[in-house]
C-alpha cells in the first residue's frame, strides 16, 4: 500500500448517483409524509369537534385518501419502505411516530 502514498489531489468522495437520488427522495418524502400526517391529525380533530359539514368531511376524507395512495406510489417508485421515511432525531426520538411506538 505504500505506493499509494503519493500526494493526491484533495480527498475524493465516492458518489453513487443512484444512492444520492434515493436518499434525496427519501428526505423529501419524509417531509411530505410528516405534513400528510399532520393534516390527517388536524382533519380528525376537526371531525371530532363537529365543526364541519358532511360534504366537507367527505371531501377531506377523499383528499387524505388520495394523498396516502400517492405516497405509497412514490415510495414504491423510489424503492423505499415506510420505515425508510423517518429521521432519527436522537434524544427526541423519530420524527414520525412508528406504529410500534407507544
Amino acid at each position: 500500500m505504500t505506493a499509494d502514498r503519493a500526494p493526491r489531489p484533495g480527498r475524493r468522495i465516492e458518489v453513487d448517483e443512484e444512492s444520492v437520488r434515493k436518499s434525496l427522495a427519501g428526505l423529501v418524502l419524509t417531509i411530505v409524509e410528516l405534513l400528510r400526517q399532520l393534516m390527517e391529525r388536524q382533519a380528525l380533530r376537526r371531525v371530532e369537534q363537529g365543526g364541519i359539514s358532511d360534504e366537507q368531511m367527505e371531501k377531506l376524507g377523499l383528499t387524505l385518501m388520495a394523498l396516502e395512495r400517492n405516497m405509497a406510489e412514490l415510495r414504491e417508485h423510489f424503492g423505499l419502505t415506510e420505515d425508510d421515511l423517518n429521521l432519527d432525531l436522537g434524544p427526541l426520538g423519530p420524527l414520525l411516530p412508528r406504529d410500534r411506538d407507544p
Binding site: A43, L44, D54, E58, G61, L62, L64, M65, P102
Partner: peptide
C-alpha cells in the same frame, strides 16, 4: 357507513383510538 371519504376518515380515527387504548391497557 356512507361514502368512501367519510369512511376513510372514520377508519383512521378508529385506528388511532384503538392504538391509544392499546397503549393505555399495556401501560
Amino acid at each position: 357507513e356512507g361514502s368512501p371519504g367519510t369512511a376513510y376518515l372514520m377508519r383512521r380515527r378508529a385506528q388511532r383510538q384503538d392504538q391509544e387504548t392499546a397503549h393505555l391497557r399495556a401501560t
